[in-house]
Design a protein around this nucleic acid. Structure first.
Lengths: 343, 343
DNA sequence: ATATCCAATGCAAACGTTTGAAAAAATTTA
DNA sequence: TAAATTTTTTCAAACGTTTGCATTGGATAT
């Protein structure tokens, strides 16, 4: 008849014919408890596998030690690196991360935020979904603000939303990548762009465009084709590029996946990298160093972003009433490898 | 002075000079509430951004609708696919997934399990860490069992632990991969093995070994070298293999990452794939189809594993007292691509 | 005018824990 | 032995919500 109901402090109290308070104090090593009582109770508690019900404590203390991490997906290297960074700082402080994957859906994002608030998460790290961008709705964020729950944007962001944010300098990373291609003598640089509307996509695109302009090179619309960040989404666009009358002699991919997809198509065509076609990606994913040829790319400090975001959260938490939000932009770094190194 | 304390039912009750019960019923559309009262209360609640405190409800109902997912890491394609599968089934049912990354650490795994139990998670999906394997300790799992919290193993497992589990048939996948290499005429097949002790590593290794034996081929110890699953860990081992007096003519990597690392080294050596060296990976990661040459691999149904694990959880939940644990083994599938297709 | 009935609301307990203050018990002091 | 002191334990409230049961007040029927 030993039901699966977890042992409570009351159960133990009954067993020892004492009050719950005594048990609670005994378990917490309160000084005003008789040594014997304490030992007996602790021993018994261990024996029966007592485990403090944190739910009741959360209710009592209004502290859940839970943080929400809301991201569009976790299948990319960068996202997992960010989570690792958050984790490294916050886990040792006793926080539990509640990772929510929106799958780029607005509705899921909204649901998750509601749920996190209902569950009294003490802070939320958010990388907004594609759909949220597209729709432009952000009432679901207002609830978070209204409830004064610290909200930290990671990576993607609403430009005009007043919160803290930790992002990577995509613009200058892209700029440096394209400038490098120009320095290598490439003349017609194509861009496999990310989905429209996303800050990440647009920032990188802007870096690409501005770099061309600054260097007196034309921005050819037909050399800019959209992808969805995934490797297979680069295949057709790259084919199209290579079949043009005046095809590009270099391709800047919005991320490594896309660049690797392009690499495959280029090689299938029998073109040589970097001699015939230069190639640059973005992210410095682990595999980029081991493709053949290895891929020039721009590294994003994902772990650092996570750690900085944690810092922002903590400072907001400790802040008294008036708190000015911070925007942290970490630099990205060009990593030159074989795919663009034309001698 | 508007403190950030969330609005409670009591606050609303005070505002309307009624009892909390009335507010609760009004918000939950209880029929015995006056229509006007209901409307007024609901409107006011929306206005002030009332949000039900789920913590208190959890305490009251002893239901948290929270499930723990404890995995060594989330940076691989497979793991995220599993999580996606779990998510797809369980999120719509109202469950929140609490994803915990142990980073292959025993201590973290133990801490997370304790925490999940303390937070009254209603079920736990576990892929045990490397350290847990190595140490052989599993008292931390006993607590879970003792508390009768459904525990489902995903992917990795203790062979002799009585729970439900959903795993992939790594053995036959590896067997098929090696048999394919043999059919292609490769004679000296090396194996870049995963870390010792992990079921995944050992199953694949066994598949490799048994296939060689069954085909009357020698198992040469010097052709079996350990890696840690990561791309860079394949570099030195592969170099060593290729510098041997009688080097292998094929390499079976424990996963795609390792195979891709090997691919790089082989190409650097000026050897041709698949003519000089055949190559097979494991996982069917998105990129494996787009390497050059594309990588023959074994696909693991990660999403399906997640969905099956969910099913196991649900059936255990609905089971009355006596419940016999299920072991589900999903087949893996050989995907033949260019890297092994010698004509 | 009184009994009957129904609609609407309030009361109180419960979930598991902590904690300040009060009470009880044990010990020391005079 | 009584008073004073110290040690140990209990009481009660609190956290926010739900819910069975009791209560209220008004309307209807007799």
């Amino acid at each position: 008849m030993n039901s699966s109901r977890p042992v409570t402090i009351k159960d133990i109290a009954k067993r020892f014919r004492c009050s719950p308070s005594t048990v609670s104090r005994a378990l917490n090593d309160h000084p005003a408890i008789n040594e014997d009582t304490r030992k007996n109770i602790q021993e018994y508690a261990r024996e029966v596998g007592y485990q403090r019900n944190e739910v009741s404590l959360s209710l009592l203390n209004k502290k859940t030690a839970t943080l929400g991490v809301v991201v569009p997906n976790i299948s990319n290297y960068y996202e997992t690196a960010v989570i690792e960074g958050l984790h490294n700082v916050l886990q040792p402080m006793g926080y539990t991360l509640n990772i929510c994957v929106t799958n780029e859906s607005y509705i899921l994002e909204k649901e998750y935020l509601s749920k996190l608030l209902s569950n009294r998460a003490e802070g939320i790290f958010l990388s907004v979904s594609q759909e949220t961008y597209d729709s432009g709705y952000y009432e679901h964020l207002e609830q978070v603000i209204q409830r004064k729950t610290p909200l930290i944007f990671i990576d993607r962001e609403y430009e005009d939303f007043e919160t803290s944010r930790a992002t990577v300098d995509d613009y200058h990373g892209a700029f440096a990548a394209v400038e490098h291609l120009i320095n290598m003598g490439y003349k017609q640089i194509a861009h496999l762009k990310g989905p429209n509307g996303l800050t990440v996509s647009e920032q990188r695109f802007n870096g690409y465009k501005d770099c061309l302009i600054k260097n007196g090179m034309p921005v050819r619309d037909e050399l800019i084709i959209n992808t969805n960040f995934k490797v297979e989404s680069a295949i057709l666009p790259t084919k199209r590029l290579l079949e043009m009358d005046t095809p590009p002699d270099a391709i800047f991919g919005v991320n490594d996946q896309v660049a690797i997809g392009a690499m495959r198509v280029v090689k299938d065509k029998g073109l040589r990298i970097p001699q015939d076609i230069g190639l640059v990606g973005f992210d410095n994913s682990p595999i980029s160093a081991y493709t053949f040829p290895s891929l020039t790319t721009v590294s994003r400090p994902g772990r650092k972003i996570g750690m900085e975001a944690s810092r922002l959260f903590l400072s907001q938490l400790n802040a008294s009433g008036d708190f000015s939000h911070e925007s942290i932009v970490l630099p990205s770094e060009l990593i030159i490898r074989e795919s663009s190194l034309r001698i």
